[in-house]
Write a protein that binds this DNA or RNA. Structure first.
Length: 215
DNA sequence: ACCCCGATCTCCT
DNA sequence: GGAGATCGGGGTT
């Protein structure tokens, strides 16, 4: 399945997007967040334009899964940039992160929301509770459900052409806004949630709980 | 063995 | 738009 997926922007974009490379993503999580906004994630049967992300750093970021050091669960965050870090949450959901930084240094960008650009029928089958198209991948676990991402995708290389899940470059055709990360009380003054202004697929902001730690 | 963590759905107002 | 119910796994004891 090789479709020339672009965002909703201009009809003048007739060329296929180039696949994102390791070099694109081997940068600080805040920079990687900006690379990923407006780009397309493509999985078997479904593609989506990323409209909301959150940056997570390493030992200096109390909200990051990597804050307390490397464990079998979070080991992918220490690996090469461009790999997918999938974690299980709430006993029923998955969340997907794109690893960034250089190998040996943890960092990742959580994919929080996207607009389905290809395969909305399949996404709707996977997300029967969605009442609007813009709800199909609005929220990190919904995004994984819509794209069919699960634990079997943990660690795969998104920059590999043969990979089942891949990233394609795109432009943020709207202004990028930022604010505190969702549910993260620690570092609440660190505005590392980024989204595209005006997208209806941006997930609702929830006030961090008092004890909030996270990813 | 225990404690802590969190996204989504449903139903209600 | 908001409140309450839902669960399995990771990390630590």
């Amino acid at each position: 399945m090789r479709q020339y997926v672009r965002g909703v922007s201009s009809a003048s974009n007739l060329k296929p997007s180039r696949q994102l490379t390791r070099v694109d993503l081997a940068v600080d999580p805040v920079d990687a967040a900006h690379v990923l906004l407006g780009s397309t994630i493509e999985a078997p049967g479904v593609a989506a334009r990323i409209v909301e992300v959150e940056a997570y750093r390493g030992a200096d970021d109390p909200a990051s899964h990597s804050y307390r050091g490397r464990t079998p669960r979070n080991a992918v965050m220490w690996g090469p940039a461009g790999h997918l870090y999938v974690y299980f949450i709430y006993g029923m959901h998955y969340c997907a992160n794109v690893v960034c930084m250089t190998e040996g240094v943890p960092g990742a960008v959580l994919l929080r929301a996207a607009e389905i650009t290809t395969g909305s029928d399949l996404a709707t089958e996977r997300r029967p509770a969605a009442r609007h198209d813009h709800d199909l991948a609005r929220g990190p676990a919904r995004l994984c459900a819509a794209l069919g991402i699960g634990r079997e995708h943990n660690g795969i290389d998104l920059t590999e052409p043969a990979s089942p899940v891949r990233l394609y470059a795109g432009e943020a055709s709207q202004p990028i806004l930022s604010g505190p990360r969702v549910g993260v009380a620690a570092a609440h003054d660190t505005p590392w949630r980024f989204w595209l202004d005006g997208s209806r697929a941006v997930s609702p902001y929830r006030k961090p709980v008092a004890r909030g730690k996270g990813r």
